[in-house]
Design a protein around this nucleic acid. Structure first.
Lengths: 222, 222
DNA sequence: CGGCGCGTAGTACCTCGGTACTACGCGCCT
DNA sequence: AGGCGCGTAGTACCGAGGTACTACGCGCCG
């Protein structure tokens, strides 16, 4: 049995979800909320398996509510629903920690399948959104490992040189690298110089770019 | 009516898909292939709406076949199926241009829904994989737009300054930027200096990192 | 043993980048 | 009319970065 909290500012919409979810035995609507603040409060109180969250709501919106629910650390998972497939919503929701994102025009069985998946710890994305998400994903997440044959130098770097490159990718100066690796600055310069030659970069800036493009540098830097 | 090409090296597996897809009126299996090379050939010949592609196959595997089919530019979409949810497969398949990735233990209706979605130009990912994909996505694709309140400067940049930052993110020197923007190097320096001050970077290297972290710089650089 | 790759270290030199500060024209708002 | 933001441009200065070249100890391999 999956317990669900329905969050939507439209009473009629809530009623519809209620009807749908009660029509099958596996889901049980344990509560409703009309805005973000109420959603956060009731989630803490009722501890539902799944929070069915509308995005557009007066006051605290669904994104912010999602963020707080996820931050609270309970076991409730958030499935975001919206009429609009605006990219910003999707991004914001996923970054807020939502486990899923579906459109309200989804067929009932899709919604139920989504709730089921989210409840079991998986994630769902509406097919119509998945395409765009994947395009972006493929753009942003490049050569995960040294896959695509062409590999101008990465493989020829020694372990030490790769370490140095990562450090350069963090934006550290030669002096900082020397300090953290307990080396002389001269040595760092020698390493950096060799790295630049091997990867075909003319300066450390292009080395940073190289590092990002090849997955050596990460946004969670420093 | 959706036409499907079934690709799998196991005859029994192909038979199973054939049975399933023929049991519903909306799909029509127009051909089968036992390995990658045959899949590429038959896709070109039969022009199916959807290619149901197994990953593990002797000879050319499903990933390479997917890459070639997508590169060929036809309207056939590839839905990759596998028994193993290995990350490398998922990554490779998506980068190869697959429109979907499902596990073979999917329930029949899920598979059919997937085929339907892919045929209509959408994309599908098995829920079990979506979670991991999203985690990574959230890691790699940072603040897409100035969403999360904290925004040390990006919003305060003028249009010109943002242009400059993008150029810096491409690894261009001040001289190159001056040349491409038809400016004096002094002006570029002034702009760069202001950008650094606004985003809180101490040098252009950290500006490059900032640009990447905020989605201003792209792997498809230069 | 001798050579080679690698990591370490140094010197010398010059360029590029960044800072500080000034300055001016343009457009917009008050 | 005056002020302000923005884009433009300049000078002067200095430190970090990069190049070129040399050097040495260590471990591995033929």
């Amino acid at each position: 049995m999956t317990t669900v909290l329905v969050v939507d500012d439209q009473p009629l919409q809530r009623y519809g979800f209620h009807l749908l979810l009660d029509s099958v035995p596996e889901t049980d609507v344990v509560g409703e909320a009309a805005h973000g603040a109420e959603a956060v409060r009731k989630t803490a109180e009722l501890r539902p398996d799944v929070v069915l969250m509308d995005v557009r709501m007066p006051g605290m919106d669904g994104i912010e509510a999602t963020r707080r629910i996820v931050a609270a650390g309970g076991r409730s998972r958030v499935l975001v629903l919206t009429t609009f497939d605006l990219d910003e919503y999707v991004h914001a929701a996923l970054r807020a920690g939502a486990s899923g994102f579906l459109l309200k025009d989804a067929r009932p069985e899709e919604l139920l399948a989504g709730i089921r998946a989210v409840a079991s710890g998986d994630a769902v994305i509406a097919p119509a959104l998945t395409r765009r998400l994947l395009q972006e994903y493929a753009r942003y997440v490049p050569a995960h490992r040294a896959d695509s044959a062409e590999d101008p130098g990465l493989g020829s770097l020694t372990d030490r040189e790769r370490e140095i490159l990562v450090a350069v990718g963090k934006g550290w100066t030669n002096g900082e690298i020397a300090a953290r690796f307990v080396l002389s600055e001269s040595t760092v310069k020698t390493h950096v110089g060799r790295v630049l030659a091997k990867i075909g970069a003319r300066d450390r800036i292009q080395a940073v770019i190289f590092a990002y493009d090849h997955g050596l540098a990460r946004p969670n830097a420093d």
